[in-house]
């Protein structure tokens, strides 16, 4: 952009601030665009920061953002710049925020000018692998085409290698790798999945591993973080918890985690819990006459207690 060039010339000591300011007057102001773009990026950053927990994820995303910005800046100064390869592996248990973060990253990369569209195409094995010979490559290419300018999110990516050597999943991986080479910088691939099968999948496909320079680990949420998530979910839906209900919620979270620590669904469990509690509150209130606005907004301990009853 012209005004960037003028500021650059001023920074390089070729023109004075006065000259830059005078020349900037003559350049049509593109404020509207730049301003709203920066504002949108700021809003997205705020959205990311407001996600509860995920500290390591947030700092990793800040790294990615800083790296992308600096490489763009270096390129603008005609310095050698690293190609921005942002293909990433997301490892984490169910409900740890992988999909949410992927959607946000895609939008952020668009506002930073790295991606053209900033949409997210979420696929799994069935969207990439076909039943008959020759169809898998086509199906995968179609998914890649849809993701152009955005982010291709492959959930449970290890399922592509599920059927062994003769399975068409391998064909999907090969097609994907080729598309990544052919369309560098045009789209971002995120392979997501649970840590253990993901590690096995990547060690058995070294060619794939080397094409994903970054790995982001999504740790399990602590009980307190899950409580905060639940509280925020209620708040978003314009409900509030009584003190006993809050205590009960902490208890229930602990109980649910203890019942099945290995398959505990983190935030997904909390979302189900919140939705169930809302239904139980409705059941409690529906028979009552003259329900007040406050009652409609209040969740009691018994509504939370009922969540654990099957």
């Amino acid at each position: 952009m012209i005004h960037d060039d003028l500021i650059l010339q001023m920074e390089q000591g070729k023109i004075s601030v006065n000259e830059a300011l005078a020349a900037l007057h003559t350049v049509p102001i593109l404020k509207e665009n730049v301003c709203s773009q920066r504002q949108r990026l700021k809003d997205l950053q705020h959205e990311l920061d407001s996600l509860i927990g995920l500290h390591s994820v947030k700092s990793m995303i800040r790294e990615i953002q800083a790296f992308a910005q600096i490489q763009q800046y270096r390129a603008s100064l005609e310095l050698a710049s690293e190609p921005i390869v942002l293909h990433t592996i997301f490892m984490g248990n169910p409900g740890t925020g992988k999909t949410t973060v992927a959607r946000l990253i895609s939008k952020m990369l668009k506002e930073m000018g790295v991606l053209l569209k900033g949409h997210t195409v979420e696929v799994e094995r069935a969207d990439l692998v076909a039943e008959y010979i020759g169809q898998t490559a086509q199906k995968t290419r179609e998914a890649v085409k849809r993701a152009m300018g955005g982010l291709l999110f492959i959930d449970e990516a290890y399922s592509l290698a599920r059927g062994g050597e003769r399975d068409f999943g391998k064909e999907a991986i090969d097609t994907l790798v080729k598309a990544m080479e052919d369309n560098r910088g045009d789209f971002v691939v995120v392979l997501a999945g649970y840590p253990e099968p993901m590690n096995y999948f990547l060690t058995s496909n070294p060619g794939l591993r080397s094409r994903f320079p970054m790995t982001i680990h999504f740790p399990d949420y602590s009980d307190l973080e899950l409580f905060k998530i639940g509280e925020a979910m209620f708040e978003q839906r314009q409900y509030s918890l009584t003190k006993p209900a809050r205590r009960k919620m902490v208890e229930v979270i602990r109980q649910l985690r203890q019942e099945d620590p290995y398959n505990f669904g983190n935030a997904r469990v909390i979302r189900n819990m919140v939705e169930r509690a809302l239904r139980l509150q409705a059941v409690r209130l529906v028979a009552k006459t003259g329900v007040t606005k406050e009652e409609l907004m209040l969740i009691l301990a018994e509504d939370i207690q009922g969540v654990t009853d099957s």
Partner: peptide
């Protein structure tokens, strides 16, 4: 005028960018 220090010029560039936005 043109400031002799590159870092200061870059910081002033940041100010001008902000003035534009």
């Amino acid at each position: 005028n043109i400031h002799p220090d590159l870092l200061i010029r870059q910081a002033m560039g940041q100010t001008l960018t902000m003035v534009r936005q």
